[in-house]
């Protein structure tokens, strides 16, 4: 089992400024999954009750001289703490900047070595930064690489996490949604999320003492789209949503407020577009983050990032 590669400067910036801060907030443990073409960071794919996230990069965007080989179809997966990965990357970056040398490159590779004070060799992801005058090596501890069966299970879970909701609505202001959810957290733990094919996103918290709802209307819709009946425009958000659900033109699910707040931390990855949708049969609430090719309004297909929030109760569906 071998893996080594050099970071591209875009790759370093992408991970350092955007993705690792977001991944760190999603949880202290994630799986790094490397294949011949892709590098992925996966959260909670084996757990049913947490926020799942999949960040996938085409290898070219993060790395050059990418060498990978394993007996398992050249696939390698291991668990890593994104915070440690971030720290190693940051200091490698500092060394690179200090050396004032453009040729100073950051290489990562998978190694097995004896940790200080131990007799058993342990696996590490090693960062090597070579400048003209100095070279610095940093070891980030990782788990034992996953077995063939576990990698297969990870791949199956990953395939299962790819099903797209029929209707996606674009949330224009994620910062506003974040500050709204931060305040809704004081009110209740369970949030009902309804999404209509008319482009309405309706969030609703209800306890015995207070009901709070927030509706965003006329959002951009991707996928199955319908026109809102004009006769219902003067009704309350709750009744309009209920009628849309009856007509099968909307879906609603209940999710944990904590999970939603956590998924909103992905804001730190600075996505260009954010879409919310409910997976078929109300299986989960899906949040899809899109990134543009720098300087354009075109979607960058070499990066994909999405979260799936487990559903507490199947709601209307």
């Amino acid at each position: 089992m071998k893996f080594k590669a050099f970071f591209t400067s875009d790759g370093v910036n992408l991970l350092d400024k955007r993705f690792l801060p977001a991944l760190d907030k999603l949880g202290r443990l994630c799986h790094m999954y490397l294949t011949r073409d892709h590098a992925m960071f996966l959260h909670n794919l084996f757990a049913a009750d947490g926020v799942q996230s999949v960040a996938q990069f085409k290898k070219e965007i993060l790395f050059r001289d990418y060498r990978i080989s394993s007996q398992n179809d050249d696939r390698i997966a291991f668990a890593i703490d994104p915070a440690l990965l971030h720290r190693a990357l940051r200091s490698a970056l500092t060394i690179q900047l200090q050396s004032g040398d453009d040729t100073a490159a950051i290489q990562i590779k998978l190694v097995k070595k004896l940790p200080a004070g131990s007799r058993n060799p342990a696996p590490f992801l090693t960062f090597e930064t070579k400048g003209m005058r100095s070279a610095v090596v940093q070891d980030v501890p990782i788990s034992k690489p996953l077995s063939r069966a576990d990698v297969l299970q990870l791949q199956t879970a990953l395939d299962a996490a790819q099903d797209l909701p029929q209707t996606l609505v674009q949330v224009p202001d994620l910062a506003q949604l974040q500050s709204l959810v931060d305040r809704l957290k004081n009110v209740g733990d369970v949030l009902t999320v309804a999404i209509t094919q008319y482009g309405d996103l309706h969030l609703h918290v209800s306890t015995s003492l207070i009901t709070v709802g927030s509706e965003f209307r006329e959002l951009r819709v991707l996928g199955v789209h319908a026109n809102a009946p004009a006769s219902e425009q003067n009704l309350s958000a709750l009744s309009r949503t209920a009628m849309a659900i009856q007509r099968d033109e909307a879906q609603s699910v209940q999710v944990s407020m904590k999970h939603l707040a956590k998924s909103l931390q992905c804001h730190s990855a600075k996505p260009d577009c954010v879409f919310y949708g409910i997976a078929p049969q109300g299986a989960c609430l899906t949040v899809i983050f899109q990134f543009f090719i720098p300087g354009t309004r075109l979607m960058d297909k070499s990066i994909s990032f999405h979260c799936r929030l487990p559903v507490l109760d199947s709601g209307s569906s």
Binding site: I210, V212, A237
Partner: peptide, 20 residues
């Protein structure tokens, strides 16, 4: 008999709360 709070003229949406 709740106390009702809601947004006035908020573009493309609304926020409402009903407190018992």
């Amino acid at each position: 008999m709740e106390l009702i709070l809601k947004t006035v003229d908020f573009p493309n949406g609304s926020l409402y709360a009903a407190i018992r």
